[in-house]
Design a protein around this nucleic acid. Structure first.
Length: 604
RNA sequence: GCUGCUGUAGCUCAGUGGUAGAGCACUUCCUUGGUAAGGAAGAGGUCACGGGUUCAAGUCCCGUCAGCAGCUCCA
């Protein structure tokens, strides 16, 4: 499973990297410095308006800044306007920003006098050899290493955006503070551009598009995180699955199917109960025996392997299953199709010998690349190493597995970033994070090298020398989960799916009812080649039908009137355009077939 | 799970403690229109669910469920 990567809380490193948010050339301070200073400005306004407030931390981040507070009484989003107003007032009045160096004792006394317990804690955690500085303006000052802009009355523009909870020092055992997010830019235009960009991002939200295009739903009556795929999205998924099976069949994978539940003991052997139990649903009693719904498919595939003796001649075995798994995600994590409780993994397990391992992993890397590139996803790959706790197996085994992943990535020229401690409980992984059209990173594909489960299950094969040996297991998913991948795909394309996997590919729109027969003839020819057609011959006005087809993001709208019937042509109007291109219908079919065949992301 | 917010027609949303509203979608009728909403009428509601306060609750209070932003988790 995967998640959105959050921006670094140490905003200084990422100051210039955000979308359209870079500071103008020639500005005397980096944007991150401005944002840090505006965070201070906000904190001073909050201090003024809410006496007794405690300060947490307030860094700049990728698209702005935040500051954490503990208020005597919780504030609500309505308070943000008030705070903004106070900020403007203070910026005009307390113009100078000053930096003051204090000794530790002075600093502590100052913070304690102000009742700033969190700040005292921060002060105590600053290394002995570092200087203690306060930055402030007017009456207000904050323990802070800086840097800051020089004056509050420079020209810049800011907006407070939202209010959220955040644990002190990011630890859920600590108190929860209230965090105010905001953003700031040197120019009004940049701020407005950024706000527009946020609005536009909302338009690509898969949940919004999902409603508009009738793609999927979740139901309170059924339960959160359980997704219903509507026919329009069923089509998309079906196309993806066909594509996936084609590639996997060519790559030597065989389909397997395994049950959704099993006796609990299976997950005892695998180590899931001990290391993954919090993610699993409670047991159900069947004939007084505890059974569990599976959170992963691997133990099931191992059952098939172990059903009889295996020879080295059979290896590698590559078994694939679009396997449904259920995992308990805490209620606050659920997010449309991107974070759910029941999902389908495009899972496969490769059982191989140590000699085969590198090539098998490399093969998965190539397959992953092929699939992600088909959709136009750019990706970054991460090497996720052993987690700090809740794992099985010896250090030496983990090292071997980690090396194997590195070598394989090397052999296909795949650069790896490090994700320290990000591995699965049974082994290290290569995880692919993909960027959507708005620059957000999501993790979907995963390749996991596992020496541990074969050990746990005492798996073996007879080698050429007659000895029984242990196979190695590669776990891998390329879409990751169909739910997340397709949810991400909706956002990546803003609902404008490529022709080959578009829910409806062609809309046929007659200008008058007289052309309905011609439309139906075209529909017949399109259906013949498995095209998905909406033949809009019901009574109604052409303009409304065009509007409808555009709204549903149908790639091709073919409009026909008398002229088209006469000349056996169609007037093509492409998704999102007002164009009118009249071509012989046969020519359109050639175009259509070519785009589908090549899985093109273009419409011409 | 935690902090804050939200839940009214299929969708988007108004609604001051006193008779349930609009636009779009839908149905029917009229309209035959050359490229992004033709016109009219109709139908559609357990105001998420359960308690409470009140003469009276969509509106106030409590709880539950679901959703939104984020944190934490997960991978």
């Amino acid at each position: 499973m995967t998640r959105r990567v959050q921006s670094s809380p140490k905003g200084t490193e990422r100051a210039m990297s955000d979308n359209g948010a870079a500071s103008q050339v020639g500005e005397p301070f980096p944007l991150s410095t401005l944002r840090h200073s505006v965070a201070h400005l906000m904190a001073s306004a909050v201090g003024k308006l809410y006496p007794g407030v405690q300060y947490g931390i307030g860094p700049s981040i990728e698209h702005g800044f935040y500051y954490d507070f503990e208020f005597p009484e919780p504030i609500t989003e309505k308070d943000l306007k008030r705070i903004e107003k106070e900020m403007r007032k203070i910026a005009k009045r307390d113009k100078e920003i000053v930096c003051e160096s204090l000794t530790r004792d002075e600093a502590k006394a100052k913070l304690q006098a102000g009742g700033q317990e969190y700040k005292v804690e921060l002060l105590d955690s600053i290394p002995e050899d570092e200087a203690i500085t306060f930055y402030g303006h007017g009456e207000w000052a904050d323990l802070c290493e800086g840097p800051h802009i020089d004056r509050m009355d420079r020209e810049y523009h800011f907006k407070l955006l939202n209010l959220a909870g955040a644990y002190w020092r990011g630890d859920e055992n600590n108190p929860m503070l209230q965090r105010i997010y905001g953003t700031a830019f040197w120019t009004k235009e940049e701020l407005e551009q950024h706000l527009e960009w946020l609005e536009k991002a909302k338009e690509s939200d898969h949940r919004k598009i999902g409603t508009e295009m009738d793609l999927f739903s979740v139901h309170a009556d059924v339960g959160g995180g359980l997704v219903f795929w509507h026919p329009n999205l069923g089509v998309v998924r079906h196309c993806l699955e066909q594509f996936w099976w084609e590639l996997h069949t060519k790559a030597g994978y065989k389909p397997v199917y395994t049950p959704h539940i099993s006796r609990e003991a299976l997950f005892n052997v695998s180590g899931h109960l001990e290391n993954y139990g919090e993610m699993m649903y409670s047991p159900m009693a069947i004939d007084e025996q505890p059974f569990r719904v599976k959170p992963m498919n691997c133990p099931g595939h191992i059952m098939i392997y172990k059903n009889r003796g295996r020879s080295y001649r059979e290896l590698p075995l590559r078994w694939a299953e679009l396997g449904n798994v259920y995992r308990y995600e805490r209620s606050g994590q659920l997010h449309g199709m991107l974070r759910v409780r029941g999902f389908t993994q495009d899972d496969a397990h490769i059982f191989c010998t140590p000699e085969q391992l590198a090539e098998e992993i490399a093969g998965v890397c190539r397959l992953t690349n092929t699939i992600l590139e088909t959709f136009g996803f750019e990706y970054t790959a991460y090497l996720a190493t052993r987690p700090a706790d809740k794992t099985i197996g010896e250090a030496e085994v983990w090292d071997r597995a980690t090396e194997a992943l590195k070598e394989a990535a090397d052999s296909v020229g795949l650069p790896l970033e490090l994700d320290e401690g990000g591995g699965a409980f049974y082994g290290p992984k290569i995880d692919y994070k993909i960027r959507d059209a708005f620059g957000r990173e999501w993790q979907n594909s995963t390749i996991q090298c596992d020496f541990n489960l074969p050990e746990r299950f005492d798996m073996s094969f007879s080698d050429a020398d007659g000895e029984l040996k242990r196979p190695i297991m590669v776990h891998r998913a390329i879409f990751g989960s169909l739910e997340r991948f397709v949810g991400g795909l909706i956002e990546h394309f803003s609902g404008n799916f490529p022709v080959w996997c578009s829910p409806t590919q062609v809309a046929l729109i007659p200008i008058r009812e007289e052309q309905a027969d011609y439309c139906r003839e075209l529909e017949r020819q399109l259906l013949e080649r498995m095209a998905r057609v909406d033949c809009m011959t019901a009574p109604g006005h052409m303009n409304k039908k065009i509007k409808e087809a555009q709204k549903h993001k149908v790639p091709f709208q073919l409009i026909v009137g008398d002229r088209e019937v006469e000349e056996k042509t169609v007037a093509i109007r492409r998704r999102g355009t007002r164009e009118q291109e009249v071509v012989p219908f046969a020519e359109f079919l050639e175009l259509f077939d070519r785009l589908v065949e090549t899985k093109s992301r273009e419409l011409r």
